[in-house]
């Protein structure tokens, strides 16, 4: 009997993960809230002027590391917690102010896009991927205790009270950080609240999704999400008509990058701590993780699998 070489495959059985283009660094030049906008164009320009030396430093550092660094810049506008003005007015002001300060904004994103981008519920996709940091002694016997909508980096203080009729009264215990060496820095982050049927994601939660987008680590059934599109001309009057991420400079390097650098005012420090507590518990698809590491290796770059190691900040005070 002769044997034949047979190949047989089923489309529904395959896992395909799209590749997306990657820069070396994604630099966030700022984050705009209504208050910042209402402070006026001059205030915006001064803010960009403070950011500029940090952005230039990022370029310098990377020029020393790779031959031709691909560095893209981005800017996030809050249209989730408060709605103000219109895209054409706000973006017009932003571009004018950044240009005056000598900065180039490659991509502009709106915060609502971190919750749902082009119909894909990103915040929910990320929420489903949370693998809570297990306190010592966790062996899988029971699901980790959770407070609906909250995520912490350790064990909460017991709530006290009595479980059963005539049962023992629980004594107070301090909360404890799981990775504590000697002392704890325990943080409990509110990820969302429900208002009626609507889930309101918290600012650090959406900021965590924002970081994952900038790192190019999110997929929906293997497909890329929140893909940047060229800025429509003219810009729409309604924020909802604006794509999640728009590309302002046609020749800009790719939006997503191996690493991110955010230049933020120090008032965002607690938010970013919370972002890291959340991101430290998001399980990235192994295939996507592998893909990024392999592509880095192709460029002779060692990309850490631990995503927190790929996220950097410059946090000047508010001078």
């Amino acid at each position: 009997m002769t044997s034949a070489h047979v190949t047989f495959g089923e489309v529904a059985a395959e896992r395909r993960i799209s590749n997306i283009p990657l820069s070396h660094v994604s630099v966030e030049l700022g984050h705009l809230y209504m208050d910042d906008f209402e402070a006026g164009r001059d205030a915006l320009r001064r803010q960009f002027e403070r950011v500029r030396p940090w952005a230039e430093t990022v370029t310098q550092i990377n020029e020393g590391r790779v031959r031709r660094p691909r560095i893209s810049t981005c800017f996030l506008i809050d249209d989730y917690f408060t709605r103000f003005s219109t895209p054409s007015v706000v973006i017009g002001d932003l571009l004018a102010a950044s240009e005056a300060a000598g900065l180039r904004i490659d991509y502009i994103a709106r915060e609502s896009g971190c919750a749902v981008a082009d119909g894909v519920p990103l915040a929910e996709l990320v929420h489903a991927r949370l693998v809570p940091d297990p306190p010592p002694g966790t062996n899988g016997s029971r699901p980790p205790p959770h407070e609906s909508g909250w995520l912490s980096n350790g064990e909460r203080s017991p709530s006290g009270g009595v479980d059963e009729a005539m049962g023992q009264v629980a004594a107070w215990l301090p909360p404890r950080e799981n990775a504590a060496r000697h002392h704890s820095i325990f943080l409990d982050v509110e990820m969302w609240t429900d208002e009626g049927d609507r889930r309101i994601w918290s600012c650090p939660y959406l900021a965590a999704v924002w970081q994952l987008l900038r790192l190019g680590l999110l997929r929906d059934d293997g497909r890329p999400v929140a893909v940047p599109v060229p800025a429509p001309d003219p810009l729409p009057d309604d924020w909802d008509d604006l794509p999640a991420i728009i590309q302002m400079v046609p020749s800009a390097p790719p939006f997503a990058a191996y690493t991110t650098m955010s230049v933020l005012s120090s008032r965002f420090l607690p938010v970013e701590h919370a972002v890291r507590v959340i991101l430290g518990q998001v399980s990235i698809s192994a295939a996507v993780l592998e893909q990024t590491v392999r592509r880095g290796a192709d460029e002779n770059l060692e990309i850490p699998r631990d995503i927190l190691k790929r996220i950097g900040y410059a946090i000047p005070g508010e001078i």
């Binding site: 047989f8 089923e10 529904a12 059985a13 395959e14 896992r15 519920p121 929910e124 996709l125 489903a128 991927r129 693998v131 809570p132 940091d133 297990p134 306190p135 010592p136 002694g137 966790t138 062996n139 899988g140 980790p144 799981n178 999110l218 997929r219 929906d220 059934d221 293997g222 399980s283 698809s285 192994a286």
Partner: peptide
């Protein structure tokens, strides 16, 4: 959500959920 269920029809119907992770320290 966001991850595909892999399914096979031959030689017998078979489908596998996406893999989830569970953390332990024990």
């Amino acid at each position: 959500p966001g991850e595909r269920v892999r399914s096979f029809e031959r030689p017998i119907s078979h489908a596998v959920s996406p893999e989830l992770l569970v953390g332990v320290d024990c």
